[in-house]
Design a protein around this nucleic acid. Sequence first.
RNA 1: GGCCCCUUCGUCUAUCGGCUAGGACGCCAGGUUUUCAUCCUGGAAAGAGGGGUUCGAUUCCCCUAGGGGCUACCA
Length: 518
Amino acid sequence: MRLISTSMEKRVRVRFAPSPTGPLHIGGVRTALYNYLFARKHGGDCLIRIEDTDQNRYVPGAEEYILESCKWLGFDFDEGPHVGGPHAPYRQSERKDMYREYAEQMVRKGHAYYAFDTTEELEEMRKKLEAARMPSKYDAVSRTSMKNSLTLSEDEVQKRINNGDPYVIRIKLPRKEEVRFHDVIRGWVVVHTSQMDDKVLLKNDGMPTYHLANVVDDHLMGITHVIRGEEWLPSAPLHVMLYKYLDWESTMPVFAHLPLILKPEGNGKLSKRDGDKLGFPVFPLEWKDPKSGEVSSGYRESGYRPDAVLNLLALLGWHPSDNREMFTLDELCEEFSLERVSKSGAKFDQNKAKWFNHQYILKAPISELTDKVMEDAETRFPGAERSYVQKVVELMREKVNFTTEILDAGAFFFTEPESYDDKVVRKKWKNDIPQLISELSSAFNDLGNWSAHEIQSCFSSFAESKDKSAGSLMQPLRVSVSGEGGGPPIFEMLEVLGKETVVSRMQNAVETLPQATA
RNA sequence: GGCCCCUUCGUCUAUCGGCUAGGACGCCAGGUUUUCAUCCUGGAAAGAGGGGUUCGAUUCCCCUAGGGGCUACCA
């Protein structure tokens, strides 16, 4: 039985190994995050390696996108194509030449073989097997009737290779052998080679498949723990066999297969292709498909804060030893452990995501929030002063879930109300109100010191002098100035708006509203 | 179809054989806020079903059901 003890003496090294086939979705981001947290927790290294062995699926910009996403969330990698490192290069396409040697070595040792079958021949084999209700695999049984170095004569094989015939190298799996490995999250997993097939290791374009490349690179790069999505669990036994055949069994990394992030409705794992279809972003950053031009929204552009996204992602599949929910990156690094990662897939909960974001908006530094809001304010309300925007942010932050909502819900801070909340007007804009609001505006106009406190006492004494309850006047006042039925604390709101604006808006409302409800 | 993984409130989850099954989001009801989307208090809400093992099972084992993943010269 092999325990973690062998690797415990070694410095922990983990890797995040995305393929640059498009933007990273939040499941991928979480995998990256868990790798990072694990490395930090154990004082080890976390590197990023680009798995671009499929040239057909390469999408320009994807690699940059992945790196930028992680940076946005506040973490980066110790080694990778962008920073280099002792095991460079970190793109598998640039390591192409290294893989063949290992595949050839396996052939020499009898653990792999050349296969010359064409796509059509493979297709035919599968059809035959399916017709016979047999599993359609290229395996210990079916390989005997295919064109490979196990069935062809040595001369024939050599002739074909010299001739430049395309071929692949396949792993040669035994007919009956139990493959077992220990997964930190799932415990022991057992699979029989009779259920596996002779996977291609080296493709006919000379590139390795994922299976060969990830095992070779993980070994060469000193990876101690492979933390990846559950979709890799079925191929893990194959990887275990590769470690064995390459004589690296004693340093084989520890495996941890993470539960998948599922779609909130119905079923299936979250995928890149979900884009905006689900009604919430699946990508950290906005992404524009270079081919179709289609744009998918991102958390960043939707007004989410990176610290909030980080926090909610960390808790989607992992739970601390107590009931704490709010975590900074540093705290996560301290608390994280693979043992507390759950086994089952997690549906993404948009409500909780909103709640998290709200919590972080409440405690964010005001200047940071203002920076973010200023980006939009400059285009939506040209000429908006930063100091003014900051005051708006201070008042509005409690009311919103997203930074982007601040300017929506607080638009009245920048422009005259275009309409007035129907419900409030119907209920509160009584017959005597226009006159009262008009008089109140005069009282406001006479105020020397325009502060929330002064406005409030002026308001109170006015109400008292008219023998009206404060409540009956407050809503009409608010709606006359902002057009809204709700909003930030009213007197502070008035202070920020400024005396002139408030007075003129009140008068405007008096002129337009009675007609509107008549 | 085959193989593998999973299964506690609607959702994310705690529980590592003793449970009156805890927390959070959401929801509902009150209360503050003389407005409100904030805030406070309370409430409804769960261990898929069937067999074992055990003094005792949500916790361990088996079966069934359901969900998910994989099944490419993609990762």
